[in-house]
């Protein structure tokens, strides 16, 4: 084994040398900022670091006792749950449909994946236009059909709905790509056996297909969670700015706001740490629980 791995390189240092650029980039752009974030979370910082005072755990105390912040955590949980659930559910549903050999299947698949190619900023602007209460097309049709013109962004529930819809719409394509790939790699013999045994389509899906897809579901769960936590900033910034009255203020947006608009870098760093720890815990939990349920056979 030893000799084999080294066989490609004459010198023992060459592989390390080749890896060096990667390490440097990781160190400079990943590990150092992470370390700095942890450090800054113990300081009260003014003007992006021009002045700072050590305050121990004060920032964390503030985050975990101030009702405003507790509300942000709750918003983040609700928002992330909805985004992850619907991204995956809709993604799976559409990929099962797109997996069928119907006329024009190539076209359907392309169309389903398309939104993923848009940048979140563009997607956010599209939804802003769609749901504009006065000039938006959604309200135009609702008005014509039902005589309704809801103020989408001024009602907390509706504003949350628009935000979730935008994030899901943008990310469904990603889920479709992976689910489609997984569906096409399913072992045909198992499904055939189920068919011969007289299982209904409903049973075939839930008893055979879905369990076989579980590794992919597991992977997508992690990816979608990361997406919901970190990549949804543009939607909030463009659509609601956290409003109405903080009803759609989620952690990633508030970190930006505290850090770069309100110059509370220490507090923002502490929130980043909380978010970081949250994602790590969630991922670990998933690996622990997931290991038992996930079926890697096939």
């Amino acid at each position: 084994m030893e000799t084999e791995t080294h066989a490609a390189y004459k010198s023992r240092f060459l592989p390390w040398l080749l890896l060096l650029p990667t390490f440097v980039i990781l160190l400079v752009f990943l590990y150092y900022p992470t370390f700095e974030t942890f450090r800054l979370s113990f300081y009260r910082v003014a003007f992006l670091g021009l002045r700072k005072v050590y305050v121990g755990l004060d920032n964390y105390r503030e985050i975990f006792t101030n009702p405003e912040y507790l509300r942000i955590f709750w918003n983040t949980a609700v928002y992330s749950f909805l985004v992850v659930f619907f991204s995956m559910a809709v993604g799976l549903f559409l990929s099962v449909l797109a997996n069928q050999k119907v006329r024009g299947w190539r076209f359907y698949r392309l169309m389903l994946i398309w939104p993923y190619a848009l940048s979140p900023a563009v997607a956010g602007v599209i939804f802003l236009f769609l749901f504009n209460p006065q000039a938006g097309i959604v309200n135009y049709f609702l008005d014509v059909l039902f005589g309704l013109r809801p103020d989408w962004l001024t009602q907390p529930g509706l504003a949350m709905f628009v935000l979730v819809a935008a994030a899901v719409w943008k990310n469904v394509g990603y889920n479709v790509v992976f689910y489609l790939a997984a569906l096409q790699n399913l072992p045909g013999d198992v499904l055939e056996a189920a068919l011969i045994d007289g299982a209904t389509p409903w049973q075939r899906f839930w008893k055979v297909t879905f369990p076989l897809l579980s590794p992919m579901t597991f992977f997508l769960f992690v990816m979608n969670t990361i997406y919901a936590f970190f990549d949804t900033f543009p939607f909030v910034d463009l659509l609601t700015k956290g409003g109405p009255n903080g009803a759609t203020n989620i952690l990633i947006y508030n970190i930006y706001r505290d850090g770069f608009e309100f110059f509370k870098t220490g507090l923002a760093a502490a929130q980043s740490v909380v978010l970081f720890v949250g994602v790590v815990l969630l991922t670990l939990l998933q690996f622990r629980l997931g290991e038992r349920r996930v079926h890697y056979g096939g």
Binding site: Q134, D151, L153, L239, T240, K241, G243
Partner: peptide, 8 residues
Amino acid sequence: YVYSGKPE
């Protein structure tokens, strides 16, 4: 009074 729903 009407506004787009987004502050600022």
